[in-house]
Structures are given as C-alpha cells and as structure tokens.
Design a protein around this nucleic acid. Structure first.
Lengths: 345, 345
DNA sequence: CTGTTAGCGCATTCAC
DNA sequence: GTGAATGCGCTAACAG
C-alpha cells in the first residue's frame, strides 16, 4: 500500500491490488494484460481495486521480464537542422499517441557515438529504432544482425533491402530542380552540396549531372562545391564562387539553409537574386516562403515521411518476424517562388 | 553464457562472470560498483572475466533495484522553435557526456500531456527532469512535492524558490531593447508579444513599459500585439499594424522569428527596414545575423543556459537532499545590427 | 574480505 | 479459472 516509510513513498504494487481484491497477484496480472481468461466477477473486483488504488504497473519490472520498454530510440546526426527537428517533432508525436516514449540520440555524425548509443538502446530494451544518420553502414548492419531490434531508416534508402526505409527519390528530385533551371534558360549551373560522403548527396549530384547531360550541357567540376548543410557553408561556397569572373547564372543548393547562405553571399558581392543569379533551395523548410527573395525549392514531404517512418516501425514491432521489410519512396515537389528566374541565353 | 537458444541470443549475466571468475555474483557486483572493498587478486580475476565475456550489466535490472535509470526527462513546449532545439542539442550533449540519456517529452503546451509525461518519467525511474515548459505551475509543484525527482526549470524563473532554475532577466532584457530604441529617437514603439499567459512574456512587457515610462512615453495598448513566437504570427501582427496610418517607427519583437515575420509584413506593405520602420528581435538565433536586413536583437546565452541547466541537474542528482536550490540569472546582451536605425524627432 | 540469502515488481509456468 | 511457486538480472543485508 502507498505509505510513507522513512520519508519515502512506497508505490502500490500488484500485490496491494491482489490483497484488496482478494485474489492472487497472478490473477491481477492476467486481467491487466488480458493474457488469460478470468471470470467476470473476479475481473470486476480486480478492476475496482485497481481504480481505487490508482495502480499503475511498474514499467521497469515489466521491462525486465518482458524484454520490452515502450521506448523508441531516435538516432539523428544533429538537431540544428530544421529539417531534422521537424522530423523529430512528428516522430515524437506519433510515438506518444501509441504510448511509446522517444529516446533522443544525437550522434553528431560520429560512428563511435552511434555505436555507443545503439548498444545502450539495446541494453535498455528499446522496442525499436529510427535511424536518420546514414544509409545502412557496416557497423549498423552488423549490429542489427545480432540483436534483431526493429529498425527503420528515415531520409535514407537501403539499397540492400535488409531494412525498411522511407525516403524521397533524391536523384529524381535534384534532376527536376536542375531541369527546371535548364528549362529556364540556364546553362551554367553550380551545385552546392553537402558532405561528399553522404549517399543521398551523391544521388542528388547524379540527378544534377543527368539533367545537364540530357540538355547537352557538359558537367564542370569547378562548379561543384561540397561542404555542409548549413547557412555558414552556403555562404562560404557563395563567397568563393561569386568572385569568379565566369560565375554561373544559377546554383542548385542541397538545402534551404545553404541557399540562404548563398543568397547572402550573393548580396555581399553586389549580386541581386534572382536578377543576377538564380538560387534554388531544397527541403522547403518554413522560412523558405518568408525569406526575401522567397526561395524556389524542392519540397520534401517531411511530415509524411516521419509519420510513415513511425508507423512502419510500429507495425514492425507488432508483427515481429512476420513483418515484411519495405522501401517507401515519397513524392517530392518543386515549389516555384522567386529566387530563380528565366535567362535568355 | 552467451549462447543461442531457439534462435535467441541469451545475454551474459553477472552469473556467467561469477562462474568464470570463480567467485559469487555479489563479489562481481562489488568490484563493478566499487561498493565494497575486494581483494586485489579477486578483483583482477573478476575484471579479466568481465573483459573476456565482454559483460555489460543489464541496466533494467539495475534500475529495478536501484530506482534509478540514467535517464533524464526533458520537457519542452514544442520543438519547432530554433531556440528550443538548440537548447535540447546542448542538453543532450552534456547528459551524454555523463552517461545519461535524454527522454524527449514534447508537451505541445498541453498541461494534461505534461502530467502524463511526468508520471511516465517517474514510472521509468528517471534520475532528473529539465522543464522548459513554463514557470512552476500548480500541477508541477504538486507533482514534485510527492515524488522528489531532481528538477530544474530552464528559460523560466521560479519565484517561489522551490526549484532550481536558469534564465535570463527577461524584464531587464526587454528594458534594454526598448531603451536602445528610445535612445535612438523612437517614441512610438510597438510590442509583438508571445502568448499573454506566459510569465516571461509579461516580464518582458513590464521591461518595455518601464523603459517607455523612464523616457516619458505613455504606454499605448493599441501598440501591443500578443500572439505566438513564430514567423506566421509575426507576419500577422505586422500586417495588422503596418496598415495603420499612425504606425510606429519601431517594434520590439519577442523572438527573432517574430521579427522575421514582421520584416516580411513590412516589405509586403512597401515599408523598408530599417528606413521606414525599425524592427528589433530577441534570442539571436543563427539566422539573425544572416538575414537581410541583419537583425538587431537581444542575445540569450542559449548554450550557456543549457550547459548550466544540465550541470545543476547533475549535481542535484549527486547530492540528493543536500543539494541547495539555486536561481541562476545569466547575462543577456544587445547585438546591434541593421534592422534598427536612428530617427530624428 | 567474501558467500549466502533475499527481494526489487511483475509475468508466467505449473498444478489444482 | 485460479493460486503458489519460480525467475528476469541485479544489489544489499547479513553472516562468517
């Protein structure tokens, strides 16, 4: 029974309920978990006792025996990125709906930290994991071969089909972005990329190259800048590029933040956007439509992606071995605003 | 021992180690936790066995008995706000350093959800809680009176001194912002606030009013707009205000996001910032210095606040009852950039 | 110093 | 249907 003992409050246990309802603890467990049939009379007596004592089964004791925790690990490479924090926002919301709690694991792109977290998650019996850190890499694959925790990759596609994943078609998305620019007369188009070792960046680069090729434009490596996703790097790339006499008429950015940095660099070089240079974003984060100029960009269905990631993980948790891995590719969309214009050329 | 059984991998337990080292499980526990002296010889034998078996104590079993979990709950009102996601970023980093994992609890400003989370956190034996959701409110106070979980309020000050808290001086910060505008000749200054039921907003409003008073300017309620922290609301407020014939020469915003929305509204009304209207932000999020115009704002020491919040919580966890509650007020700073200018008159 | 015993709170055999 | 006994993996109390 809940009573004070040396200043500490002892919580009510399944035992207190059993005593009050005049049954055994086993029976209480059975009615609470619906694990075995219990006569109606007893069930009601138990429920009454549960209500009156306001009994909540201790989740830790439950975890120990059931090997599950109602905890979901969410691994992210960083949180500064608005794209990622939106993702987390929705994931947490969905998981909460289904009574799961989110364990936030920021790997800061460090594989060692990621492994630490993965082991820790296993140790805590998490019921599932969402990985937004990278395409399945050897250390991750090795881990999940051993421990069999439900997992889904978000924002990355698993070409090996060993894991479930939700993503957009990065190749096609950047192809579309580049083609839009080409259709508007641009022939000299720079590419401001993120970390070159990121597969999705490479996919986007391929889309960019293919679009150029389809329009008979030769790929010029000096127009390719690989740094990071944020404003600062967009600015740096811009400052280097816009100084050049032979600067391009447009640039494809790997994120809206990079685009914002690039726009700023353009201004600092006395260039108007889009009159002197067109700048295309990626993601369509909320600030893109408020920015000046309003940013033309590729919209990723962020919310939809995270909802699906959550649901895929949840059904994987429910169905266990029977679950069929699946790869979902969600549609992107080009959002035409004002940071890009037609050139006659 | 780690062995396959029906396709499942059984983890190594403290027992396996005990057998291998030829000691009792209790002894293994003692060397691992340094809870009791153990002879050097035995200790080394145990350590060797631990190494060889790569034994990691099961944290759930540990939690059950120790009533602690190496888990920290972080309650936030939302994650979309860059200010908050930066906060979380740093908190998670600090906690990870000390081997604590972060449980992300987004209350979405719903007191019921907050209570659900609080109960859940207790149920999971979290070692501490950081609350960024509000000043201590009755339901929170009631909760912590019963359960005695270490807690610290971040971004809010507890005037009752029952809880530890880290914050800036919101009154003084907005006073400084307003005074800056006044010193630059402005006499008609609007205030774009956040939710009016937020104490820190009211504090800022007081600072604003006091500064006006100190300069002999009468407070004009029609210049006060209370909505929310985000771009959209800043835009809305701006669209209403800037239409007025008697529009002010400056506006104090409650966040940089609101300022961004306001700047956009100004542009949409054909107003130049700062030539036609000065707009002051708050927070100094990273985009403030890149934006055009670069935003003059009040910098909150976000990183420092979260580091301190983390450390205060950690020492509270260590020192238990001996811990002295404390209220820390960190210095803010006015960052003069280009969204505000001097007016004559 | 070290081993034995007990128990954290719960779910699940196994008998009845 | 229901209760008693057992154990999840670990730490703590008590002997020795």
């Amino acid at each position: 029974m809940s009573q004070r003992l040396g200043g500490k409050v002892l919580d009510i246990t399944i035992y207190d309920v059993a005593v009050k309802a005049n049954v055994s603890a086993a029976t209480v467990s059975r009615v609470l978990n619906r694990s075995k049939p219990v006569s109606k009379a007893v069930r009601e007596r138990v429920m009454k006792a549960v209500e009156e004592l306001n009994f909540k089964p201790n989740s830790v004791a439950r975890s120990l025996i059931m090997k599950e925790s109602r905890l979901i690990g969410v691994l992210i490479p960083g949180i500064a990125n608005v794209f990622i924090s939106s993702f987390i926002d929705t994931l947490e919301e969905e998981f909460f709906k289904y009574n799961y709690t989110t364990l936030l694991c920021n790997t800061r792109r460090d594989d060692d930290i990621e492994m630490d977290y993965l082991r820790l998650l296993k140790d805590k019996y998490v019921d599932g994991v969402v990985l937004m850190t990278s395409n399945p890499k050897p250390h991750q694959i090795g881990f999940f071969e051993k421990v069999e925790i439900p997992a889904v990759f978000a924002g990355h596609t698993d070409s090996t089909k060993q894991f479930s994943s939700v993503n957009i078609d990065n190749y096609q998305a950047m192809y579309d972005a580049t083609r839009y620019l080409l259709q508007n007369g641009h022939r000299k188009i720079a590419f401001f990329g993120g970390p070159a070792n990121y597969l999705q960046i490479m996919e986007r680069l391929s889309g960019y190259k293919q679009a150029l090729a389809d329009y008979g434009v030769e790929y010029d490596e000096s127009l390719f800048y690989a740094h990071d996703y944020d404003i600062e790097h967009g600015y740096e790339c811009g400052m280097k590029l816009f100084l050049r006499k032979d600067r391009p008429t447009a640039v494809c950015c790997v994120s809206d933040m990079v685009a914002i940095g690039a726009i700023r660099a353009a201004k600092d070089n006395g260039l108007r956007v889009p009159e002197d240079i067109s700048i295309m974003g990626f993601d369509d984060i909320s600030i893109a439509k408020t920015y000046s100029p309003e940013i033309t960009t590729i919209r990723q269905p962020i919310r939809e992606m995270s909802v699906q990631a959550a649901h895929m993980l949840l059904s994987q948790i429910q169905q266990k071995e029977n679950y069929m891995r699946e790869t979902r590719i969600l549609p992107h969309e080009i959002i035409v605003r004002k940071s890009c214009m037609t050139v006659s050329g």
